[in-house]
Design a protein around this nucleic acid. Sequence first.
DNA 1: CGGTTTTGACCAGCGC
DNA 2: GCGCTGGTCAAAACCG
Length: 163
Amino acid sequence: MTDKIPKPPPPDTPDSDDFTNQWPFELSEYLKFDDNQWMHDGLESFASENVSNQVHQVSNAGEFGGGSSHFEGSSSNTSSGRENREVRERVAFKIMSEIEVLDDGYRWRKYGKKMVKNSPNPRNYYRCSVDGCNVKKRVERDKDDPRYVITTYEGNHTHPSSS
DNA sequence: CGGTTTTGACCAGCGC
DNA sequence: GCGCTGGTCAAAACCG
């Protein structure tokens, strides 16, 4: 099952950070959260319509390979613990597709499946198979809209997109 | 043969 | 202190 998807169109953005542009599916919404308040108590509403409140258009999602968001691990500076070690950017996507695993040009190795209580559907955990690339991907189906898939990316790829 | 997938169990953090 | 959820790893099985 390496390439279940025929990988349709990697047309003219093979090395662009905007790999979202090559997604043939309908990217309904794109969510970016610096904190983690998006699914704190609004996961249900988030999947419904509330999402429109803090959702940006895909076209504007031009930041991916550079960790643009000023994500900060801790808030205060601790006397000894300084610094946020590795800034792991988290981005959540809501895609309308029957396929959950879209081929974005990278190879993902599934490393776990878990059933969340909020949804009758299981949550899949993927990890980048490339050595040195510690990017993680979390795929979950919507609870109210099974035809929607929520993909959460964690981290940035440090290797060239194959192809 | 290699790489990947799959299920279960384990662990950690947090809540009450 | 215990329970629960979420997350990760591990071994085995399977595919190309």
